[in-house]
Amino acid sequence: MNWMAWTLPTALFFSFIAVILICMTVYEIKSPCVERKGFLPIETTRGDRLFIGLLASGYIHLVFVGLSEMSLFIALGISFVWLAIVLRWG
């Protein structure tokens, strides 16, 4: 796997994504979700909300990197809070 040039942070990142996907699959099998309407303007399923949360997290990080010199851990924290909010009330 040397050609893929793995680093610890990217390995952690992808493991985290993989764990989320596995958990979501198990959760879905245990209790299938139905579409519902939260504060987002459209009806969403659990997977939709995860996608919206992750995509928005990507943009939050880009805004932090592009516009400020602040530590990315702040962006990471905000993303986690955002992800939780979207998954719960989105």
Binding site: N2, W3, M4, A5, T7, P9, T10, F13, F14
Partner: peptide
């Protein structure tokens, strides 16, 4: 998927050779 993961790996490193 694997090429995309490789791109992510490359994007956080300064690579001169293997």
């Amino acid at each position: 998927i694997i090429p995309l993961m490789t791109v992510v790996n490359y994007s956080v490193q300064d690579i001169f050779d293997v």
